[in-house]
Design a protein around this nucleic acid. Structure first.
Length: 475
RNA sequence: GGCGGCAUACCCAAGCGGUUCAAGGGGACGGAUUGCAAAUCCGUUAUCUCGUGGGUUCAAAUCCCACUGCCGCCUCCA
């Protein structure tokens, strides 16, 4: 049980130790369900999945909580007064609740398609309004909040170490702030813990509170739900790097103000997937790639997972189609190799002592990579080392591969050959051509055979002659 | 303006003081196999080299400084 992890709090890689022996309380920031997740979001969830699997693989029992932000919060168009949820609802002519339900479901499906294990607890912000109001009350009792026209704000100036996580230079922020100052805020870094509904319009989502009708500030939900499900101290809290400076910093401020204890031992952040051609992938900017878009282009979701695992989680990764192609090819080889190995293993007897040794060497490399701050590129290298080792008895290699897959999460145990939906019409045409070609081959009329193969290729079908006869598949 | 990161072969990407002066994947090329292909297997593909220029050190891709280029955050974007 030795695992070294980078901690944003200390900016160092340290050996992970849980608060309670053998158990890990893990909180990961979940999606705001007003639209589909884009592949950049998904990269972060893949990283968190690898973290969670690695903890389990190293022997910890993990309790994982993930929130779902279904409360509308403000868009970046500060003056519009509309929030993302309501905007999504207006766009699609549905209620905010329908929107939230729909995209949450879509998100869950993405997780399944990427072999991301679901959390033990899903918690929705709107199911925890009372807890959030309770936190504001607690903050009020400590004299840490103040009231402005549009909401109740947290006074960050009262905290000595505000911004410790992000190492914020608060003075510097004030000097160079390019954030529009809310009128009356005492510090640039102050943030809303409760927002009032606009006087002239009724929001679709709003709740009464001791301070007035409105809705909770965004940062509050994670604090409230993490406290509820994981207690006052938890081991690891994750999210995207963009959350370091604001969201997580504010979560810490609120939570630790209330409990008086260090809340989170380990903060971990996944780096961004960037779009090669300058365009940034952001939900709020309209154009973004979803997992479904990749599928529509013919990629299998685990190929995207492979693409992500090929780079370290703390490294920015530029999305390029050719890089994805490269990952997709590698993943197909892995899939085929795994299927062969599974079949061979079923027929094979256990290995010799020598083979056992060779095998444990590979596993040792793999373990070292995992334990070194989740170095998946190295872990994949170890996996290929195992697959390339033809001396290893199949049963042994298969057992080791499955063990590695507990971390990698490609679902190799039950993986099936890639199949692409083909309509019956096309299938019939291809079969007919193949029959003709087989006949031509029998007569040694290879020119004719090649011509037919060309015709088949024009239908977007790849034809292979195997010892078992011709095999085809739609590309 | 503040904070942070990155520059390694054709591409992606590990390595972060010596113990391999550089993993793995993709691609390309050569060979085996094939009627020819595909798939598969074997081999080759950074050796005045790790953006450039200095420095530290017995020793640097790995540490320090400068420069250049790129990227991200500081907006309720993962």
């Amino acid at each position: 049980m030795s695992l070294k992890l980078y901690n944003t709090l200390t900016r160092k890689v340290d050996e992970f130790r849980s608060i309670r022996p053998g158990e890990v309380a893990l909180y990961t920031c979940g999606p705001t369900v007003y639209n589909y997740a884009h592949i950049g979001n998904l990269r972060t969830y893949i990283f968190e999945d690898v973290l969670k699997r690695s903890l389990g693989w190293c022997g910890w029992k993990v309790k994982h909580v993930m929130n779902v932000t279904d409360v509308g919060h403000l868009t970046s168009d500060a003056d519009s007064g509309q929030d993302k949820m309501e905007k999504g609802a207006a766009r699609e002519g549905k209620s905010v609740w329908e929107i939230a339900g729909f995209y949450w479901q879509a998100f869950k499906e993405d997780l399944v398609r990427l072999n991301i294990l679901p959390p033990d607890v899903w918690c929705k912000a709107t199911d925890h309004i009372a807890e959030q109001i309770g936190m504001v009350k607690a903050l009020e009792a400590k004299g840490l909040i103040y009231r402005l026209e549009d909401g109740i704000y947290f006074d960050t100036g009262k905290l000595g170490d505000y911004g410790r996580l992000a190492r914020l230079d608060v003075a510097g922020l004030q000097a160079g702030a390019r954030v529009d100052l809310v009128q009356g805020k005492r510090n640039v870094t102050d943030f809303a813990v409760w927002k009032f509904s606009p006087k002239d319009s009724k929001r679709l989502m709003e709740w009464p509170s001791p301070w007035g009708v409105g809705f909770p500030g965004w940062h509050l939900e994670c604090s409230a739900m993490a406290l509820k499900y994981l207690g006052e101290q938890l081991d690891i809290h994750c999210g995207g790097v963009d959350h370091v400076a604001v969201h997580h910093t504010n979560e810490i401020a609120q939570t630790e103000s209330i409990t008086g204890k260090q809340w989170v031992s380990w903060w971990m952040h996944g780096e961004f997937l960037t779009m090669g051609e300058g365009a940034r992938m952001a939900k709020s900017e309209g154009g973004f790639l979803t997992l479904q878009a990749l599928i529509d282009k013919g990629y299998d979701p685990p190929a995207y997972r492979y693409f992500c695992l090929n780079a370290h989680y703390r490294q920015q990764l530029a999305f390029r189609w050719e890089s994805l192609d490269s990952a997709a090819t590698a993943f197909e080889r892995l899939r085929n190799r795994a299927i062969e190995l599974r079949q061979a293993a079923a027929a094979n007897s256990a290995g010799t002592a020598d083979a056992q040794t060779a095998s444990s060497g590979r596993l040792a490399d793999f373990r070292e990579a995992v334990e070194d701050d989740l170095n998946m590129p190295r872990a994949l290298a170890a996996m290929w080392g195992l697959l390339k080792n033809s001396k290893l008895p199949a049963r042994q290699a298969w057992a080791d591969l499955l063990d590695m897959d507990r971390v990698l999460g490609f679902g190799l145990e039950t993986i099936q050959p890639r199949k692409i939906e083909v309509d019956a019409d096309l299938a019939a045409r291809v079969e007919k051509l193949i029959a003709e070609r087989t006949a031509a081959k029998k007569e040694k009329n290879f020119a004719r055979a090649d011509e037919i193969r060309k015709q088949i290729a024009e239908l977007g079908v790849e034809l292979k002659d195997t010892p078992q006869g011709p095999v085809w598949r739609k590309l």
